[in-house]
Amino acid sequence: MVRSALASKQKIGQGPIPGAAYVPAASVFVGILLACLPIVALSGWFPDFGFLILIAWRLLRADVWPSWWAAPLGLLNDLVAGYPVGLSVVVWTVSMLALDLIDRRTIWRDYWIEWALAMLLILLNETVQWQVAAWMDAPVPYSAMIPPLLISIAAFPIAAWIVVRLDRWRLGRQ
């Protein structure tokens, strides 16, 4: 009994996979490429998958990447998804910096606080998209942004679950 209590469930010699440090960025890249799916939709209500995976990683760990990696990833998202160049660069980098500052303030965190933070960041993302669209002669009423906002907020736990699974896989903690 003592022996079984002391025995580690982890197999000896099982560690992080090679290139584990780049798995988070690669998963964000895959999320960005989801914009290439052949979906011809009448309304843009799908969540911004790259952004969801980005903030899910950053909320899970503070050291997944240096904050400035968000800028090139955002540029890629702009080019792939057809946003005005610079939109995601700004929003994604601001999100990383904001979470850096919040990390200094919060003493503890639970799942609800993480979801609330994600909610705020998704709200920021959608509002900036809406404002930039308005500046580019496409002033959509804000009420049209409510459905995609709710869908994105509801989709965050799924992104967070995927990210946790990926994290366990890359660190060899199955």
Partner: peptide
Amino acid sequence: FSFIAAILGLAIGLILLAFSIAAPNSF
């Protein structure tokens, strides 16, 4: 330095976005 780089990235992003809005054909 990663913090400084992030702020630099943000500044570059703002400039790109300003260009995209003011002159949509720039890129």
